[in-house]
Amino acid sequence: MTLLEGEREVILKHVKEILDDRGTSRENLIPVLQQVQDKLGYLPDLAMQKIAAGLDIPTVDVYGIATFYNQFRMNPPGDHQFKVCMGTACYMVGGNIAIESFERRLEIREGETTPDRKFSLERVACVGCCTMAPVVLVDEEVEGHVTPTRVDGILLAFETETEKEEGKNGEGIEEKEERRSDA
């Protein structure tokens, strides 16, 4: 992936700061990767190369770790992330139906980001809210009892938010309020 203008400098700056703070022992590899991803949203190749150099290990080993753990991603995520819980309780009452609904509405597959980088969709292991199954994490907020209709509601709320931001027209604010209160 080609980096946008200025991205290179940002990456180098953050990686350097984090390495300076964390130290250069191999044991720090995972915390360093976590912190870099927190800052950048993903792990660009350049960041992994600099981390490898900083910790004095082969680049392929850093790539190995980054591809082993679910947490790490190699591509920038969408502005908003939908994480559909696929724990047992959620699966049994329609977690896969929720995923399919998102896939249909967003026209992407799980693990992908919409072309405008606005939304990304992934499945996650049990988030531990089994009693509200099926559960979807909308960014960091937990939405319980997510039916296909609810999926429409969640997306509609984002649409009206965008409209509000872009056009400054007040329409749809009530619907957003509604979403908050029945959440």
Binding site: P58, V60, Y63, G64
Partner: peptide, 27 residues
């Protein structure tokens, strides 16, 4: 040398270079 290593997990586990590129572009 550190040109190749195990990457990915589970059924996807494989031996690759950094980023899965060609050996010629690796160390």
């Amino acid at each position: 040398v550190g040109a190749i290593g195990f990457t990915h997990r589970g059924l996807q586990r494989k031996v690759t270079t950094f980023g899965g590129g060609l050996l010629a572009d690796s160390p």
